[in-house]
Nucleic acid binder design. Structure first.
Length: 276
DNA sequence: ACCTCCCTGGCC
DNA sequence: GGCCAGGGAGGT
């Protein structure tokens, strides 16, 4: 599932293909992916003829800045993928949007489970969009231990659930939340507001190290290969995962079997021996 | 601050 | 043939 490292990897690969280029055509095969678009706003019309000024990312939201202060946002959801079309190739199943640029590059947005979406915002629309309500970016603006302490103050929810709250810190998803908590040796069920300063230090460091390493690996392509880089390569962080998806296997730090629990409806993999 | 729901491929 | 995963918006 595309989390921050996967979205950032996709952004970096796409950036040189799109910056400075002008959109010449937009084909939408499935309207559901435009459900965030306000009524009467013409997604294809807003993109067509507009030049790409640059790309940005906040949390898991990819933002493409267009002429006339329009912001084209792409969220990959659970199973979304961006791809640069190879010459003459047919798009894979569930390709919902096809964008052609003025040098004939074609970008595909593919998403079997359709939790992802794309939308073109005016500045006013952007200001009331979900993208504008995100917390600080986990990669480029990760809170230090002091700031994290104030974010978690008096919070009674499990720390795992709070790490997934995109309005606190943006970009951490289910895989990297588990990996960071394991790296910091913190029990995922601990109430957020009870973390002590040494634990907060370890957590901030673990989030940072986990995301940096995942990014350096090009993200995590799970066995289902739902996530691939835009050029078709796999992200290789799977082989470095410490706990995610390893229920019953030995903890790589202490040897105890990795456990699976459910927190807020999400699978949580952790070691009850060394995360306590 | 919590629960429900959206959607589909893959697995039992 | 039925169930499950899972990000996050929206409702209560």
């Amino acid at each position: 599932m595309p989390e921050l490292p996967e979205v950032e990897t996709s952004r970096r690969l796409l950036d040189p293909f799109v910056v400075g280029r002008t959109v010449v055509s937009v084909e939408v095969n499935r309207g559901r992916v435009l459900r965030r678009q306000e009524r009467d706003a013409d997604f294809a019309g807003r993109l067509t003829g507009r030049r790409v000024r640059g790309t940005r990312r906040l949390g898991k939201h990819l933002m493409i800045d267009l002429d006339d202060d329009l912001t084209w946002v792409i969220h990959l959801g659970m199973s979304g993928r961006l791809a640069i079309a190879a010459d003459g190739a047919e798009p894979p199943p569930h390709t919902h949007v096809q964008i052609r640029l003025d040098d004939d590059t074609e970008i595909w947005f593919t998403d079997p489970r359709t939790f992802g979406y794309t939308v073109a915002y005016t500045p006013e629309e952007f200001d009331r969009s979900p993208t504008s309500r995100l917390g600080s970016d986990a990669l480029t603006d990760l809170p230090d231990a002091t700031r994290l302490a104030s974010l978690l103050e008096r919070r009674t929810a499990p720390i795992k659930a709070l790490l997934l709250d995109q309005s606190l810190i943006a970009g951490i998803g289910n895989i990297y939340a588990d990996e960071a908590l394991h790296g910091a040796a913190i029990d995922p069920f601990r109430q957020g507001g009870t973390l002590e300063s040494g634990e907060l230090d370890r957590l901030v460091t673990a989030i940072s190290v986990t995301l940096d390493m995942a990014l350096a690996s090009g993200g995590t392509s799970l066995d289902d290969l739902a996530y691939l880089l835009p050029d078709g390569r796999t992200g290789d962080y799977l082989e470095r995962l410490q706990v995610y998806g390893r229920e019953g296997e030995p903890c790589l730090r202490c040897g105890a079997p990795v456990r699976r629990s459910v927190i807020r409806g999400r699978s949580t993999f952790w070691c009850s021996e060394c995360q306590s």
